[in-house]
Amino acid sequence: MTPLPEAAPTRTGISHAKLGTWAFLASEIMLFGGLISAYVILRSGSSHFYVPPRAMMGVPLATLNTFILISSSVTMVLALVAMHEDNLAKFKRFMLCTIGGGFGFLIVKSYEYQHKWHEGITISSNLFGSFYYTLTGLHVIHVIGGIVLMFVVLSQGSRGMYAKNSDRVECAGLYWHFVDLVWVILFPILYLL
């Protein structure tokens, strides 16, 4: 596979790929920000907002998922370091760990959904249920998208495509850290407060 050419100099000093990724992440902030704002306002303002007791929410599983996502963020950033070192074996190892973290998160989440369903917390049970499944469901879709992206980056990176230009690894990393960041906010507001 032909390596990508070195990033061309730009007027802003930021590569087009990175600037585009940040613009995309800004739109994502508005998407999650709008939903989280609606959740906070309805929860503090509506007398019909019933919040299930913490025992029903499965805090230990959510904490485990937080650790999984934080760990996968670290392995992602270490994969970028490995690419900067031209160490492909290390890059592959860290990318596989990141993908593993994504799958781990999905497995725990699917178990958690099943548990909540049995507890009677469904998308149509009440306002909390609707927000819980909308916010975490949207986040899960982002995790699935991230896993697909990681596979593409792993495949291209392993074949030496990023030998001169590692922009794609960095942009994939930005997206993955954003997914982690959203979970860091969702965890306390949905499970702990």
Binding site: S73, M76, V77, H177, F178, D180, L181
Partner: peptide
């Protein structure tokens, strides 16, 4: 946590 992830990882 958001600050640490944004500043260092991103």
């Amino acid at each position: 946590k958001v600050f640490l992830i944004g500043s260092f990882f991103m």
